[in-house]
Design a protein around this nucleic acid. Sequence first.
DNA 1: AAGGCGTGGCG
DNA 2: TCGCCAAGCCT
Length: 291
Amino acid sequence: MFDNPYSTAVLAWYETNARDLPWRRDDATPWSILVSEIMLQQTPVVRVLPAWEAWLERWPTPAHLAEEPSGEAVRMWNRLGYPRRALNLHAAACAIVERHGGEVPAAHADLLALPGVGSYTAAAVASFAFGRRHAVLDTNVRRVLARAHTGVQYPPKAQTKAETALAESLVPPDAAVAARWAVAVMELGALVCTARSPACADCPIAAQCAWRLAGKPAYEGPPRRGQTYAGTDRQVRGRLLAVLRESPAPVPKSALDVVWQEPVQRERALDALVADGLVDPLEDGTYALPS
DNA sequence: AAGGCGTGGCG
DNA sequence: TCGCCAAGCCT
């Protein structure tokens, strides 16, 4: 039996508080929505906006991207971070052309089969682009439900079955309403029920929020591990790839060697980039983005 | 299933 | 300052 005590207030709040994001406009396509979802994985909206515009200007359909070498996708990705997403998007475009006649599929299972598309992204695209009824559970929604429903400040580090079950129990029966609920509760988490300083005074469900009613108890549990960056392989990979992105031609290894002093770590990072398909070692000893 | 994978802004 | 955080995915 469906009982979502938050949906009416959250939906009404969304009507007047939603951001005007380009991938939410009427002229957004399933492809442009898929691109936005991949770009938004672990990446703030403000940084995605210009990248999304440029990407769709150049590749307005999956077929346009599929025609190009994967390295062009990596180059276009610029400094968005996690560049394997560019490779995934290129491979997804190829798969969409080969398996779906160039049209982004609407079925969750078909979306899930695309590289770089996990359960969240598949549900988001099915919901936002096609109006399908799915639980859309991202970090924003997890935080809202942790607070409003469970009464704790933060969700657990790894997503649990209980969270999935809760999210599914809250999906409105009607598909169109469900899609609206999905984007609305995400937006609430992004704008009001934020991680560091939630604006409870502006929250449409503050009166029903279990965490607020309990006096906003502080998070209890294992320390949430922060990802260090300086000195890691990730930083080295980032520097190596930046050299290749910025060079229109293949580069000699000496151009890569200068970005990191320590040779063992440098070689390990380069080997990993090659293994990941982000870098192509050419026969003449130079390196390039993949073709 | 815990940890790797980029980047940059903010409190 | 520097740790935390930002519409996760993959192995």
